[in-house]
Design a protein around this nucleic acid. Structure first.
Ligand SMILES: [Zn+2]
Ligand SMILES: [Zn+2]
Ligand SMILES: [Zn+2]
Ligand SMILES: [Zn+2]
Lengths: 130, 130
DNA sequence: ATTTTAATCGCAACATTGTTGCGATAATAT
DNA sequence: ATATTATCGCAACAATGTTGCGATTAAAAT
């Protein structure tokens, strides 16, 4: 019964997520963490937080990986079926919790997870682009 | 007017794509190419083929990158808005040309590209799993 | 409060993936 | 046949992620 422990590094990572409105990459977290813990430790903390459904992993169109807090903790089955938006200009990635794709897939496929990422200009960059 | 040239390496890569029903990673292509050309050359060929809309890039949930042939060459505007299926067991990635997500997004976002990847069990692995 | 257990950590070493610069090569137009 | 330049090979580098293992340390047990 692997119990997950609360460590200084994990607490720091959680606080960083708490203060961020957008998704964060490993590199961005490491920059904020400084030398509080090792690179590898951050990777392992992220892995644990994903397994515990506290954060979820987001893979962008360009292959970059980021993580964001999970909401909807009330639900029994924890599926991250919302969309993500990736801004081409400011490079920020945000959860669009309310945007969920509908689709029809052949019955002989079994879908366990989906990744729906939209790329373009976010509201901020769209305004400053006029 | 940068003209694109036909080289032995490019021809070989195109033939490999022609013989494959699933998407291919750089590593998989390199394995088939052998020492016909350098690693870097394969990267550059893939980049060119993407720019020429001959293949398209697919980023999986786990961050792995693959490429697949483009169809629908008749269309003037070339958008890869179809879904991709990633099998958790055999790790193959296939284009689902007919599966296109519908969604509603706030008007203050400008969408230029989408990535819709489904993950689970493909028909082959679903059968052999019973 | 002290001991015990094992989850977590730091560090080093490694693997994979992708990029860049530059002189050499070769495909294509003239 | 010659000129132009897209493409190539090679080396070097950067970013990202993984693994093994002995040392720590959070949390449970006493
Ligand atoms: Zn933006
Ligand atoms: Zn999200
Ligand atoms: Zn399969
Ligand atoms: Zn496709």
């Amino acid at each position: 019964m692997k119990t997950t422990r609360n460590t200084a590094a994990k607490t720091a990572v959680l606080e960083i997520f708490g203060n961020s409105k957008t998704a964060l990459s490993h590199a961005e977290i490491q920059k904020q963490i400084g030398d509080l813990c090792d690179r590898v430790t951050i990777y392992r903390i992220l892995e644990r937080l994903v397994n515990d459904d506290i954060i979820h992993k987001i893979v962008n169109l360009d292959g970059t990986v980021k993580y964001a807090k999970c909401h909807h903790h009330a639900q029994r089955v924890h599926i991250h079926n919302h969309a993500h938006f990736s801004c081409e200009k400011c490079l920020e990635i945000t959860c669009l919790e309310n945007v969920k794709p509908s689709y029809i897939i052949p019955h002989n496929y079994k879908v366990n997870d989906i990744n729906f990422t939209l790329s373009g200009l976010c509201p901020n960059c769209l305004n400053s682009n006029i």
